[in-house]
């Protein structure tokens, strides 16, 4: 039996107003509306959310873990991007 595969969606849930949506998991659904319904049933059975986003999984472009050093290492040496790099006279107090 060869059935057509049902598309995969990534689910993001906002648990409280004031917080960003956070990745919760994924669901399979034929279309966006059914994906939302499934996401609600699967990921918010105990008041975990006030808002749900579903995104087709194949619409996400992800960085390659192999590029991790190239992408993220350079910031390691840029300590002048942090406030603690700068000297402020003690008498001035908290800044």
């Amino acid at each position: 039996m060869t059935e057509a595969p049902t598309p995969l969606w990534e689910v993001f849930v906002r648990s409280r107003n004031g917080l960003a949506h956070k990745h919760a998991g994924s669901v399979h659904a034929a279309d966006a509306q059914m994906a939302l319904q499934a996401a609600r049933d699967v990921y918010t059975r105990r008041g975990e959310g006030l808002s749900v986003w579903v995104v087709p999984s194949n619409a996400i472009t992800a960085s390659d873990p192999a590029d991790r050093e190239m992408l993220f290492e350079p910031t390691g040496s840029k300590i002048y991007r942090h406030p603690t790099f700068y000297e402020v006279p003690d008498e001035v107090g908290h800044m």
Partner: peptide, 25 residues
């Protein structure tokens, strides 16, 4: 509610397995 949860558990886990490159089907 419990039986519905178990269905949910199955779905979370299938989703986790799928991240390793197998399809739900």
């Amino acid at each position: 509610a419990k039986v519905q949860d178990e269905g949910g558990h199955g779905l979370y886990l299938y989703a986790a397995a799928e991240t390793l490159g197998v399809s739900r089907e």
